[in-house]
């Protein structure tokens, strides 16, 4: 098996064209596990880790542009991500373990398109866009259009993800990522919830974005629940009602990690994590 390490995108495209059956590898934390498990042996691997163009993070026009080959560890170590995108930062810190985070990348988590991918629910609630490029040019699409199903994306043959563009929430927004795994590290999410809430002056929730992981074929957004919470104070009773709506709406499955019923319960209960937010507001108001 040949392994290529292109250093520029200009070097990459001819390699991809010459090796149409090749596998693209960023960190390898998903790909190598899959190859070992299935016995698949692609004729070549094209590694993206030395592409400087894919390893940058920069603020551009009110958003954070994250190169697809930026590692999860780099995200977890980034002050900008910590301060401006706390849900993404928490998700990065909750993904795998230090060695996994050292290899795994944002673009890889995106392209694996697992409903359990930790960075995905935060990227949904922040309204991230995915920049895709191929020999013929670039395009940009919302994350919800990029991910089509479990392990399925709208990436065309010959294309790769180059960047994730994450709009920075306005000041005063609260965002967080809640994950339930089977242990505190090295755990695939049994269920997760990302939230991003812009609060109104009177302490109620203004704009609410929610995204659940591991309770459906892809990350799940429930606009009806968001609309229900918008404008309300996040008191436990309100959150319980929203939780019941969410539990009824998600589409979880049974697997070796958990039953669908448990995942459904979590989808609802995780909203009550926001009750602490209501407490803060009450205290602020006093």
């Amino acid at each position: 098996m040949e392994v290529f390490f292109p250093r520029t995108l200009a070097e990459l495209w001819p390699l991809k064209a010459a090796n149409p059956e090749s596998a693209v590898m960023a960190g390898g934390t998903d790909l190598l596990v899959r190859l070992r498990k299935t016995g698949e042996r692609p004729p070549a691997i094209i590694a993206l880790e030395r592409l400087a163009e894919l390893r940058r993070m920069s603020i551009e026009g009110g958003g954070l542009r994250i190169g697809a080959a930026v590692t999860i560890g780099e995200l977890a170590a980034s002050e900008i991500v910590r301060d401006a995108l706390p849900a993404l930062w928490q998700a990065a810190a909750a993904l795998g373990s230090p060695p996994v985070r050292h290899g795994a990348t944002v673009g890889g988590n995106m392209c694996t398109a697992s409903p359990a991918g930790d960075t995905l629910p935060p990227l949904y609630v922040y309204g991230a866009a995915v920049a895709v490029a191929g020999a013929a040019g670039c395009r940009r699409l919302p994350i919800g259009d990029f991910i089509l199903g479990p392990g399925r994306t709208s990436l065309a043959p010959g294309e790769i993800v180059t960047d994730i563009i994450v709009p920075l929430p306005t000041g005063g927004a609260f965002s967080a990522y809640y994950k339930v795994g089977k242990r505190r590290a090295m755990a695939i999410a049994v269920a997760s919830l990302a939230v991003c809430i812009v609060r109104t002056a009177d302490g109620a929730a203004g704009k609410v974005r929610l995204a659940w992981g591991s309770v459906g074929p892809t990350v799940i957004s429930l606009p009806a629940v968001e609309a229900f919470l918008a404008g309300k104070r996040l008191a436990p009773d309100v959150l319980r009602q929203a939780g019941a709506m969410a539990a009824a709406a998600v589409l979880p499955i049974d697997d070796v990690r958990a039953s669908a019923g448990y995942r459904r319960s979590l989808a609802g209960n995780l909203l009550l994590k926001l009750a602490a937010l209501g407490d803060d507001e009450q205290e602020d108001g006093r």
Binding site: V33, S97, K182, R183, R184, A185, A187, I188, V256, R257
Partner: peptide, 11 residues
Amino acid sequence: LATYILPTALD
């Protein structure tokens, strides 16, 4: 060991 869950140092 992805499905058989051993405790980690954090657990």
